[in-house]
Amino acid sequence: MIEWTVLLLAGYLAGVLNAVAGGGSFLTFPALVWAGYPPIVSNATSAVAVLPGYAGGALGFRQELRELSIQRHLILSAVALAGGLAGALLLLVTPASVFAFVVPLLLLFATAMFALGPKIMAKVRKSGLPLPLLPGLFLVAIYGGYFNGGLGIMLLALFAAAGMSNLNLMNGLKNSLSFVLSFISVAAFAVAGKIIWFEGMMMMLAATLGGYQGAALSRRLPVIWVKRFVIVVGLIMTMIFTYRLI
């Protein structure tokens, strides 16, 4: 009963966080590991739990996304699919002991990206150095297929480096491509039998409810409070997973 309470609460709060500021995977992944599932299985199941949030976010920016041609959408989606699949396959061939070792590093990196995201975006814009969008997207999608944390801010920084300036369009594209690459990675994890489906689906439902209510909460709660909470959670989880290795 305690285990289910923690998993459902983690899913719900992840949905709230993703709707307000992002960072939901900082809760779903550690909760599954705490429940006793191996890190790779927990990572794959966590991807299932947060998947609908990306689709909902993309629909919220559907008006802005219409600014891109269908051909452009297809090309970007194809690159995201290829990168997401490559990242998922890379995770599947990673030995469990190696993944357990790199988890604290991935969590710390994702936390740093989340904390420094606005500064990174500002520096990228000021640099004026254009970054090829498609090769950059492929590399970011590999990371997203391998480990989801911090994916959103990496995509936004990439779009800024590629010369995009419409923030609403960038957010819509971020959610759209995150859904595409996460969907293909979940499919790969499913074929490999790395997903705990019942727990994942229950957490998905909880995250969907949390996302719906989080949208209303985002209008009342200062985003900076939520961001600070996510950063603290990310640092705590990094320390916990580091301690597990000692």
Rank of each mutant, 00 (worst) to 15 (best):
I184W: 04
G117A: 15
A157C: 08
L105T: 15
L205R: 04
V93I: 14
R125P: 00
L158M: 14
S69H: 11
V33N: 06
G210D: 01
G60M: 12
M170W: 13
P104Y: 06
L133I: 09
V191H: 11
F61Q: 11
S178H: 04
L129V: 15
V20P: 00
F189I: 13
N18W: 01
I75D: 01
I240Y: 10
L91F: 08
L89G: 03
M154P: 04
G84I: 01
A96W: 04
K174S: 13
Y12G: 04
T238R: 09
G193E: 02
V41T: 13
R228M: 06
A96S: 15
F189V: 08
L221I: 12
S77Q: 07
N43Q: 10
A157D: 02
E199R: 03
F101H: 08
P39E: 07
S185I: 09
L167Q: 14
G145E: 01
W4M: 11
L209M: 14
A215M: 14
N43M: 10
G136S: 09
A35E: 07
S185V: 09
A206S: 14
T111V: 04
A21H: 00
L129D: 12
G15I: 03
M164V: 08
P222Y: 06
T242H: 02
G15C: 03
K194M: 10
G128W: 08
V98Y: 12
S77H: 05
A86Y: 02
S182R: 06
Y143I: 13
S165H: 12
A188E: 06
V16E: 02
L89Q: 06
G117F: 12
G22D: 00
F179E: 02
G57S: 06
L177Q: 03
S185L: 05
I196A: 11
V226W: 01
P118D: 12
R66E: 13
G23R: 00
L131W: 14
R219V: 11
I195T: 03
A115D: 01
N18L: 04
V102G: 11
L108P: 00
N18C: 00
V232S: 11
A58L: 09
S97Q: 15
V191T: 13
G15W: 00
T28L: 08
F159T: 12
I195N: 04
W197D: 05
A96R: 15
Y146S: 14
A100C: 06
M202A: 12
G24W: 02
V140Q: 07
L221M: 14
S182N: 15
G87F: 13
L169G: 07
T28E: 05
V232K: 05
A31K: 11
I2L: 09
A206Y: 06
A31Y: 09
A86F: 10
Y54L: 03
V140R: 00
L74E: 08
I184G: 04
L7I: 02
I196Q: 10
G57Y: 07
L245C: 07
L133D: 05
V226R: 01
G56F: 14
A187N: 05
L134N: 05
M170H: 12
M203N: 09
F179R: 00
V102L: 15
T94A: 08
P130S: 13
A86Q: 05
H73G: 09
M1D: 05
L68D: 12
S42C: 07
F109H: 11
P52H: 03
S176F: 15
V102F: 13
G149T: 01
K119T: 08
P135D: 08
M204A: 10
R72K: 13
V232A: 12
L9C: 06
A49V: 07
A216N: 04
I231S: 01
R228C: 10
V41K: 03
